[in-house]
Nucleic acid binder design. Sequence first.
RNA 1: GGCCUCAUGGUCAAGCGGUUAAGACGUCGCCCUCUCACGGCGAAAACCGGGGUUCGAGUCCCCGUGGGGCUACCA
Length: 478
Amino acid sequence: MKKVRTRFAPSPTGYMHIGNLRTALYGYLFAKKEGGEFILRLEDTDSKRFVEGAVQIIYDTLKDAGIVYDEGPDIGGPCGPYIQSERASIYKEYAEKLVKLGGAYYCFCDRERLESLKDENGVGRYDKHCLRLSEKEVEEKLAAGVPYVIRQNVPASGSGSYEDMVYGEVTVDFKDIEDGILLKSDGLPTYNFANVVDDHLMGITHVIRGSEYLSSTPKYNLMYDAFGWERPVYIHLPPIMKNAHEKLSKRNGDASYQDLVDKGYVKEAIVNYIALLGWNPKDNREKMSLRELEESFSLAGINKSPSIFDEPKLRWLSGEYIKEMSDEEFFRRAEPFFKASKAYGKYDTHKLVKILKTRVEIFGDIPSKIDFLEEYGPFSEELYFNKKMKSDAEIAKKVLPAIRELFRSAEFENAALYQAMCAFAAENGMKNGQVLWCVRVALTGKENTPGGASEMAELLGRERSIERLDAALGFLGV
RNA sequence: GGCCUCAUGGUCAAGCGGUUAAGACGUCGCCCUCUCACGGCGAAAACCGGGGUUCGAGUCCCCGUGGGGCUACCA
């Protein structure tokens, strides 16, 4: 059996959004699963849309996400060059060949005439006007240097069918297909031509791309057939939506891979999540590593309907990855986010990591979770009131002075502090919660904190804990 | 407008003629608990509508409705 070869063929027109990445991921996963090869090809035939830096973003994103290609512009390979703008002579050669085979023809119509073919709504099809030109007339115009394009010669009747691996049989009448331009007047091919030539020349066996090509695939097949080339297997993917009506798009600045990484989502989780958007392993697994995805991927699990990108679920998955990290790894990967906090560098990192790991789903949550350590000031007495803890400001007034004394001599270690405070509660006939709630509130001035009274005290240290208790008593007017 | 295509809870999604219609996220409740979080348990929540086919339709067919795509010298 022929070795599977898939490709990811993006246009360098901006950043990589989630939909692009998923297309790349599926191509990669399918190739790996089948023991084949995955190729990167840059489709930059539209110079007007080229965006500086976009090529680098593509390389960086794929690399960062762990999607490695076997051949590509930056690493080379036997079918290069892998950048379409560097393959102009190849397309010209094949376009001319297609003309000889009857699958295409020269067209010299100017824009004005083309415009005149359209109705008031701007719709109208090319009328095959130049197909009627004799060979001699074409030669003359070419010799005279008249600008031209090469158009596909689509049969006036009949229809084209193919079997898509996810959508099943797709049929389009040829009368609904226009004689599209294959080679532009600037000598470069359109996508419609370049993708066919390149996929064939690069030995692509399985074409994996977005469903926007579902209905134009029959015209590509016409070319494969005209050239006498074997048609590839088609695998069209449903779109990823930002909501029920809009596709995720570069315009609108929708979720790019880099945006998500910048927000602090764990990248393995991003890859994992997008793999699950439109595909499922049939066995209810959710958290899967790239390796597991490579082993489990199958076309049978690909969905036909569009799926909406749901950030809360990605968030959850990211949190699952975080909880699984060692403290060291968590800190190493989260460091840039720690640096964004006012509390950075002022507290024991190990202790911070410990209290944060189960309370953070994306690294970006970190600053807001620990900034409170540096934001102490007067707060409402209402905070001391907690129905379930049976505590209030009056109890705080009794508890705090005693705990302050306890703090002077206590061993400042979480478990010991906790025990000491519980012992104090027991000795005074109080509930643990009454004491601990008051102390925690006094120490932080916050209703919620990522850790209990003893953990907060340990983090702050003896000196600052006592200072804050004094301050809190002051706020209470004691 | 024409053509292609899709349609199960709010979201992802299993189901591929006979099920009490899975599971996950989210939401809500309870438990655990030094607040919060983690963890555990539980609840609410879906087959777009109408016709067929069939003993029997979420599953098959048709129509409608709704969504997405294509209809560029963009990909």
